[in-house]
Design a protein around this nucleic acid. Structure first.
Lengths: 151, 151
DNA sequence: TATAATTCGGACAAAAAACTCTTTAGGAGT
DNA sequence: ACTCCTAAAGAGTTTTTTGTCCGAATTATA
């Protein structure tokens, strides 16, 4: 019931970045502090998301990470396809290499409709919306009291 | 989308054991061959399931593993609670230690109903039923052609 | 131009998960 | 009693995931 830690950090960080004023780069260090996750590891994850086109990065003073233009509405599904790999939704729950309607594992026909629900849920949540809900104070992004929010 | 390999092996093995005549111990070696899974590793998993009360084991000639009496109807939920641990269903999808209706992560209220579907699915599937469906040839347990079945 | 602040890249380390090997112990058949 | 077949147990190995460290490249500003 479970995403890899890498995916969890990625989603948390992306939502956090989306809560911040667009165009102003956010420091890796600040994200890491705010989310209470290892900074050096988070940096790797963010760098990878840059290469994959979700984020822009800027070096030097006033540097940091921003959502790339037009990526505000990226769905969690798209994010997880990047962090978990393109087979994220494709694999058999019991690990069979071949498992389809035609030749199925014993869980297949119960699992497929549930998996569809999961996919639908992930597709209907996007960074902008989630960030908005976090900004209103409705939700917590980390195991810490909601941080003071920018005016 | 996603069980640990350990859980996958456990479920596959338990269903396989349930397909075999009750009371006749099944050899670890045979299960491993049938499922195409590392035998020594599978043995550890089965030993653990013994300690946890799901299986009985017998040493020496005519030894092997059987479902413990009365465990035929064990649900996949019960199995996964053993293999994935008791927090299997309890943890936050974003990894927050505290995440509840009262103080939620941004995915919480979308995730909870989906999680309920998953849990319901896992609770309504039990070893006996699954084994029966496999015995009829309806489903495959491994990436191999369905094995010849005992008369 | 110098400096401080940042990301980038690669190597490294630690921890967890997956898997193996070897030895011991127990039970069945002869 | 002896032998063979099995699981049990524990240590060890390999692979993957998670996490650290450090030096180099880049940029704003004084």
């Amino acid at each position: 019931m479970v995403l890899s830690r890498t995916s969890q950090y990625a989603v948390q960080a992306l939502i956090y970045i989306a809560t911040q004023p667009a165009g102003e780069p956010v420091l890796n260090r600040d994200i890491a502090e705010r989310l209470n996750v290892p900074a050096a590891y988070l940096a790797k994850i963010l760098q990878s998301l840059c290469k994959q086109g979700l984020l822009d990065s800027f070096r030097g003073r006033l540097g940091g990470f921003c959502l790339r233009d037009g990526m505000q509405k990226t769905s969690l599904m798209q994010v997880l396809l990047l962090t978990e790999g393109p087979d994220f939704t494709k694999s058999c729950i019991l690990g069979l290499k071949e498992c389809s309607d035609h030749s199925a594992c014993p869980m297949h026909f119960k699992w497929v409709p549930v998996k569809k629900k999961i996919i639908a849920m992930l597709q209907e949540m996007n960074l902008e919306e989630l960030a908005k809900a976090v900004r209103t104070g409705k939700y917590r992004l980390a195991d810490l009291p909601a941080a003071a929010l920018p005016a």
